[in-house]
């Protein structure tokens, strides 16, 4: 029996996942907050207790994510790009392009059939192409992200958004509300604006089918629809836990390192 763990410390959330012979036996998600060290340890302990395991039972721990350096108890580290690619190809073997949209970063990764990274592009500078964009827009609309996703599917006509910047777009959304544009149409436009930004990043590395969408934003139905329309293809979207793919990939690499086949 081989037990391995993957810890993914993101800017917003930290995730831990425990594998037993490459099968998921538990996961945990906590807020990263200020102290990433604490968040990493806490999520790890939480996942262990869910799996009824002790630290001694674990053969190898891999850390990934923006705060991977803070996982002091890890045995190894892997970039977010590497862990996402590994997890993606293991779960969906036909994947050649991975789009990972997190809270404060988005990535497009081109991989081969073995999950080897061929090329990638990252946006970590501008909120307009990340999950925080839709989050702040939903705040401006005073509805939840889930509601906004569902509403946007009912939108019939989108309005062009002029603002590129997430901060300015918030003001623009407020003026759209004042102009009495139906909220469904505003929601649709918001997702389209975000999708167009992420698509152009994906196009930079070249799109190859199949295309997999992961990260917390993969829960957002409105965003998925907008991306599919923009890229003119059907995306693969994990049925559950799309935000755990990187932690899963890290735990798989941990299993490789631990030597079990």
């Amino acid at each position: 029996m081989m037990i391995t763990a993957g810890i993914d410390v993101g800017n917003k959330n930290t995730r831990a996942l425990i594998l037993k012979d490459r099968e998921v036996i538990s996961r945990s998600l906590v807020l990263s907050d200020f102290d990433h060290k604490k968040a990493a340890l806490y999520s790890y302990e939480l996942a262990l207790s869910k799996a009824h395991m002790n630290k001694e039972d674990v053969n190898f721990i891999m850390a990934t994510g923006a705060g991977q350096e803070e996982v002091t108890f890890a045995n190894g580290r892997i970039t977010e790009v590497g862990s996402a690619a590994r997890g993606a190809v293991f779960l969906f073997s036909s994947t050649r392009t991975v789009i990972d949209v997190g809270a404060e970063e988005s990535r497009a990764i081109k991989i081969d059939e073995k999950g080897k990274v061929l090329d990638f592009a990252i946006n970590e500078k501008c909120a307009a192409g990340t999950g925080s964009f839709v989050e702040s827009m939903s705040r401006a609309l005073e509805i939840t992200l889930e509601e906004m996703g569902a509403l946007s599917l009912k939108g019939e006509k989108s309005v062009p958004m002029n603002a590129q910047c997430a901060v300015f777009a918030e003001s623009e959304v407020v003026s759209l509300i004042h102009a009495r544009i139906p909220v469904e149409n505003i929601a649709k436009s918001i997702h389209e604006a975000m999708a167009s930004r992420i698509s152009s990043m994906v196009r930079r590395i070249g799109i190859q089918k199949e295309v997999l969408l992961i990260g917390g934003t993969a829960y957002n139905k409105g965003f998925i629809a907008a991306m599919e329309e923009d890229l003119e293809l059907k995306l693969i979207v994990p049925a559950d836990y799309p935000e755990f793919i990187s932690a899963f990939g890290a735990a798989l690499v941990a299993a490789d390192k631990a030597g079990g086949k």
């Binding site: 990433h36 404060e104 500078k125 307009a128 901060v167």
Partner: peptide, 18 residues
């Protein structure tokens, strides 16, 4: 500092403090 988005200002400051 690298001048990232205002939305990330908090994350950026926290990173520098850490």
């Amino acid at each position: 500092v690298s001048n990232t988005c205002v939305v990330f200002a908090k994350t950026e400051a926290a990173g520098l403090l850490r």
